[in-house]
Design a protein around this nucleic acid. Structure first.
Lengths: 339, 339
DNA sequence: CTGTTAGCGCCTTCAT
DNA sequence: ATGAAGGCGCTAACAG
């Protein structure tokens, strides 16, 4: 009863194997009559082609792989949604490789961009390190980087956000409000995962400060594990300073929430006594009335898939690096100092 | 250069195909010496076995499929995390089938539980309808239902939450606080996806009311699309009633947030003038200080995988239906009426 | 238009 | 302990 194959269909329909195969694949080289008959039998037998056999035979996997540290941050999930939904309209399946350790990251980088695993790969929010470059450069499949970058990867399609500019924008906004004592709280600048976003946003922060002629103060800089609680601890320290900042730019909304919690615990009013600005504009930001820098999360995934599908369709052109814009979303956690 | 196969390895190592295969699969029937030599060559050639070939040959896919409407609700993501992380420790890959339309749901139910697609299937938060039963009953692969159920599926392993009890608990808590005018806001009771959770929670609500001798009032019942905004609209209507409720039980935290927004817009203080209780205890609930019914989201996924892996290991025993407990989490959105 | 024939890369008896 | 050979289900020339 189980495992009905193309052979069973052929026999039952009184045709050759190839004909059944043609019908399955929508080849025009079949007469209407036989096609109908074959389809009829396929229906009767509830035949479904074996994907493994098909893949082995064609050498194509009809699969796109995405490698990412998904479940660590809400923003990644939103990007993944964009990927999922865009890919749904294509003929490709999606394989999701979730990365939560460096070891697994390396395994994935090594094993996934191969013809036997996937026809194309999206690397999400995992910027390659220098030693990954040769590996990716000679990959057997097209690769698109989303929210990931590296100076010497101009041969790969990329979809990124200009986080330096985003950080600049956030800081400049605080400066414009009149703040001069502005703190920054973000991830470790150097991490085994080589997350670049926090680093870039910090750089934008520095640039804005410089441009405004405001001196950078190391005690206003805090780095730690990503997450609400670490950020809260950093903020508590910063707010306990003799001369505490009047505003804090957090490298993500999640961290901004930690900052607000710290302020609440210390009896510091937001935004009267402390302005807080986040980054990403995840759903929760709107709920909390958090001022933030919005980036196009869903769209980045969508765009990444579109680029990949083009490559897969054999469309060859110069690799592009698309830079998605950021946008300042003013809400209720920022105000002029001492207002 | 590309596509190094088992054959290349064999030749280079001066052994037969079978020996390489044995090494790959950790067979003990290989001398230490040859094993080392073969591994050496595998390393040199960067050989990686072709999964499609392996699958075709063994008839196993080494893949577990999970079918779910993931990206629609935060709670599903948390369950998925539990699945992912638990499966990571096994030899199985995970295929994720995201369902956002009824059509796709039906396709998935039909095509995924087949030997050629996956060795085992987890159906998440999609309760089968009556007409799906025969399909699932004669599926070729073991199936575990997580957060999904059906009276006549006692032959399948299931991991569920007793949502009737959860709804009962929430309502009883409000009653104990002294509320008598208690509203309920949830999803459509009948939906093409056959989501049962809202329905069950509503049932628990009714039971608690009955038990307390409080009459059910239809004007205190609101159903609509899942989501914050629909819930907000329903709440606005309910709060505009001549005799408005003093408490509202929302069938999910997401909807509770909508209710709170409605209260804010109407100038109604929570919890002084209106108590709000949610369901799920997603991350955002803690942030907002929302009283809610916690369920074991992550653990449900974990447990589902464990059950599936047992079946996959050939461990046959009576199918179980594990019921995960719920827990009332008191926070700041509930209080005695008029307090 | 249709049937026949080789493989795709690997695993698995079956001999040796 | 190891090698040779057949087959998993399908596609893709190649003949007709």
């Amino acid at each position: 009863m189980p495992n009905v194959t193309i052979r069973d269909v052929a026999r039952r329909a009184g045709v050759g194997l190839a004909t059944v195969s043609r019908v399955i694949n929508g080849s025009p080289l079949v007469s209407e009559e036989t096609r109908r008959r074959v389809l009829q039998v396929i229906e009767e037998l509830e035949f479904v082609p074996n994907p493994a056999a098909r893949r082995l035979s064609t050498g194509k996997t009809l699969t796109v792989a995405v490698i990412a540290p998904f479940f660590t941050r809400p923003a990644f999930i939103e990007r993944l949604r964009g990927i999922q939904n865009t890919l749904l309209e294509s003929e490709y399946d999606l394989d999701v490789y979730n990365v939560e350790t460096v070891k697994r990251r390396d395994e994935c980088f090594h094993e996934i961009p191969r013809r036997e695993r996937a026809d194309g790969v999206i690397i999400l929010s995992l910027s390659p390190r220098d030693e990954d470059i040769p590996l990716l450069a000679r990959a057997e499949t097209p690769i698109v980087l989303v929210d990931a970058n590296h100076p010497s990867l101009s041969q790969l399609n990329r979809v990124i956000t200009d986080d330096v500019q985003g950080g600049f924008k956030a800081t400049q906004y605080l400066l414009k409000l009149g703040h001069r004592r502005i703190g920054f709280i973000g991830d470790w600048l150097e991490s085994p995962f080589n997350f670049t976003s926090s680093r870039d946003r910090f750089q934008g922060y520095r640039q804005a400060l410089d441009l405004a002629g405001v001196a950078y103060r190391p005690e206003y800089f805090g780095q730690g594990e990503h997450g609400r609680y670490p950020a809260q601890l950093l903020a508590e320290q910063m707010l306990a300073l003799p001369e505490r900042p009047t505003a804090i730019f957090a490298a993500s909304d999640t961290q901004a929430i930690g900052v607000m919690q710290a302020a609440r615990n210390a009896g510091i009013q937001v935004p009267q006594d402390l302005s807080v600005i986040g980054y990403d504009d995840i759903e929760i930001a709107e709920l909390l009335g958090l001022t933030t820098i919005r980036q196009m999360l869903y769209e980045s995934g969508q765009r990444g898939v579109e680029l990949l599908l083009e490559s897969l369709a054999g469309f060859h052109r110069e690799p592009v690096c698309e830079v998605l814009p950021t946008e300042l979303i003013e809400r209720n956690t920022t105000a002029p100092p001492g207002s």
